[in-house]
Design a protein around this nucleic acid. Structure first.
Lengths: 213, 213
DNA sequence: AAGATGATCTTGACAGCGTTCAGATGAATT
DNA sequence: AATTCATCTGAACGCTGTCAAGATCATCTT
């Protein structure tokens, strides 16, 4: 499940001197630790341990702990994009439902992987320009939201500023709900609304940015 | 500026064996380090160093590094409440302007103290119930937003669920803008809108939760 | 085919971290 | 004046991120 190229690696024994695809193994080990134990439990030495290499080995693939975490975040953005696209395909052609489904998928992704989502946020902040995974490919999460905003009539495709603003506004709304929606103190309210899915839908509805016009 | 009770403490010399008010001094030192160098640069030993005590001294006032950071976060919520109340007083009695001013004040507080705001978020998450500083006093930030939601007609005071939902929705919107609005990649858009204040106002407007009905 | 090159991995080390514990200090109580 | 007890120190533990020097081995050159 973790490796593809060499079929006989259990991360601790019978491993050849050279790993084969250590870079990918490190990223996946880090992702696993973050998802399992949280971001605070992620140490570079621990990642190396889980991958079955020495504490210094990662430095031949990443210049920094930061750079490894950046790679994990980038992987997260790819996953997020895939989840959103899958949800788009699932709901089909109805524009109004599609845009809401995108917002729900975004929020649920954060709910299911809170620590990973947090790391992704850390990665995307303070970048020189929009990070590649946010605008280069049409399949990126950013492009998905952007297109949805135009389709849903929340921005005029003629005005680049308008489109950017609509996309950013929607992203901010989703981010706020994604990060705060999981607070334990909201549990009673979720029950009163008949489940957390309704809770998230209601919040998205009230922010308005994920409704068609 | 850092101490009030003992007038002769410079944190390294001429200090009596017992500090006097080390607890407060530690909180303020930690706050200063976070605001100055960011959350990642905050170490318990560094805080003790800045306060002029041994690395073990803080453990007589906080059981944990976590507990110290919690105290810093609580202080931050008090400051936030004060800022918002000051802004309410400033704009006077117009309801429509008041609720917008609250949102703007919240977002600007986060812009001016991003690391502190992030710490506050960490403090408020995963609490058993709403933390005291968020609901006990009428002067708390939570109570301010809550009252504003009722005044602005965004929730019926008869329905507790409605009020809570409106407050949480507004809080989520503000949180999203507060955390993402400072991204460096939005700088061009801010300029195109004629300043970041307009940028924040526009985003708040689009989320709708800080507009009167 | 043999040797050289360079990427990959290990060993060992360094400073700094959070935390604990035994002991020093001194303010407050008796 | 003696005792008590909260406060602070000094030293230590295992952990961390990071680096430099050397071992290993795949690949390229001749």
């Amino acid at each position: 499940m973790t490796d593809t190229l060499p079929p006989d690696i259990d991360a601790t024994e019978n491993r050849p001197y050279h790993h084969g695809d250590l870079r990918r193994a490190l990223i996946e080990a880090a992702r696993a630790i973050i998802v399992r134990d949280g971001a605070q439990a992620l140490s570079l030495r621990g990642v190396a341990r889980e991958a079955g290499v020495s504490p210094a080995a990662p430095y031949h693939h990443f210049k920094d702990k930061q750079e490894l975490m950046l790679a994990v975040g980038k992987l997260g953005f790819e996953e997020l994009g895939e989840v959103m696209e899958a949800e788009i395909r699932r709901v089909g052609g109805a524009v109004a439902e599609r845009i809401t489904a995108i917002g729900v998928a975004y929020v649920l992704f954060a709910r299911d992987n809170p620590a990973l989502y947090r790391l992704m946020y850390d990665c995307s902040r303070n970048m020189e320009a929009l990070p590649p995974e946010m605008h280069e490919k049409d399949h990126s999460a950013y492009a998905i939201v952007r297109n949805a905003m135009i389709e849903a009539g929340r921005a005029s495709p003629d005005s680049e500023i308008d489109v950017e603003l609509a996309t950013i506004a929607a992203w901010c709304s989703a981010h706020g709900i994604a990060e705060m929606g999981g607070f334990a103190q909201f549990a009673p309210l979720k029950e009163a609304l008949g489940g957390e899915l309704n809770f998230y839908r209601e919040l998205l509805k009230r922010t308005g940015n994920f409704q068609a016009r």
